[in-house]
Design a protein around this nucleic acid. Sequence first.
DNA 1: AACATTTTAATTGTAGACAAAGATAATTAT
DNA 2: ATAATTATCTTTGTCTACAATTAAAATGTT
Lengths: 240, 240
Amino acid sequence: MTERPSNKKSNCLSDLRRRILTQDLEPGAYLDEVQLAEEYGISRPPLREILRQLAGEDYIVLHQNRGAQVAPMTHKTLRNFFVAAPMIYAAVSRLAAENARPAQVMRLKDTQTLFRKAIREGDAAERALMNERFHAIIGEMADNEYLTPSLRRLLIDHTRIGMTFYNPSFGALADQRTEAADQHDQFIELIEAGDADGAAKLAIAHWELSRAEIERFVSPTPMHFELGTPPSKKREKGAS
Amino acid sequence: MTERPSNKKSNCLSDLRRRILTQDLEPGAYLDEVQLAEEYGISRPPLREILRQLAGEDYIVLHQNRGAQVAPMTHKTLRNFFVAAPMIYAAVSRLAAENARPAQVMRLKDTQTLFRKAIREGDAAERALMNERFHAIIGEMADNEYLTPSLRRLLIDHTRIGMTFYNPSFGALADQRTEAADQHDQFIELIEAGDADGAAKLAIAHWELSRAEIERFVSPTPMHFELGTPPSKKREKGAS
DNA sequence: AACATTTTAATTGTAGACAAAGATAATTAT
DNA sequence: ATAATTATCTTTGTCTACAATTAAAATGTT
């Protein structure tokens, strides 16, 4: 309420990103402009600008005269993800090791600290967000404006998939998370050492670990992705 | 003037894309909201939505309280482009050959017809746009939402670079363009035949041809990219 | 009672007016 | 005359109100 307008707006933007990444706003959910505008203390025009930007970043999809929808997960999502992820992750990690700057490495270490803390405390959303931030920083390090768009897109769904499959009662995943955190430490070391080949190789290993976790959940049961609700049918509000 | 509002808006969006791709709006140029709003017969709020979307698509960059700037070309542009382009183009072309649908192939052929026509008639802008569309359709065929973001980003600058280096008085480029058009025909054949390896291989060859053209112009003289004008200095209007 | 049609309500899209921030011009002091 | 400060103007950012479109409800018809 006492914030400057632009702060409220950027806060709204980052918070909507957060809510989509953590599945607080679920894939396929429809967003209500007036409700969100009130919630973030801004009027509809600036909110609509934010929705357009989120659409450009592929967090949401806009439908003519029928509002904004959180980007749905389709049956093709996982298959396409498996094709693109290792290629982009490896390429970005390689470039990050070549181009990383000390200030960026510091931010990476800070994020890793928060990542481990979230694992310790069993905070699924925070863990997913810090993992996303970790890899987004590696993307910044790569400093290649032609690869970051796909990396960002991958991270959106990778984070959401990670939230979907999160199951604190399943003990085997605890080991998986510990190993993932250890690999993050290795990323930091390799990037600091400028070891491009090592970073690319680690990216593949890191990917394979994540892939194994995903496949373990996908294989036995049919995928429980939300299919996007068609616009003409009854629309569920995401922020109810 | 007699158009329905939403038509005016989508027309504005696509026309701004066109003007940026053809360098009618040059890299680094600043855009005037009121001027553009008048030009396209809409008010500022919807125009600002469009600018946000274009920012999300990386056509332009927004600066807090100092307006929208056409995405600048920096000294790193070409280097990063050379790293990312062959990888993305090859991957996308491979997937296109695997997944292309007949209706898409038809659109590809139509675009190719327009592409050859533009070459014949020496229409540089139209040629650049039809080349962009051709490769964007291949991107659609690939049907992988994680690769298209980077492909789109590459095509923006590839198209702009093509316009920059376009020189109708230089005869050697005529051969280059003919060969590029022939390769487009080969793309169509390979995609229709579902030859993934062939399409990926052709993508590399197509890239090498383009790369050679670019390097021929870059080598002798220093790059004549526009560096983005810093916001605090006097700002040139793009649509003057 | 089921279906089609009309009426009502809710939501999205747009416009014009106002507020705030930044850049430029003018003024004053040294 | 030059530099700093103030004032003006331009441009961006936001809000409220209105228009248009779509979804839902109600009414009427077969």
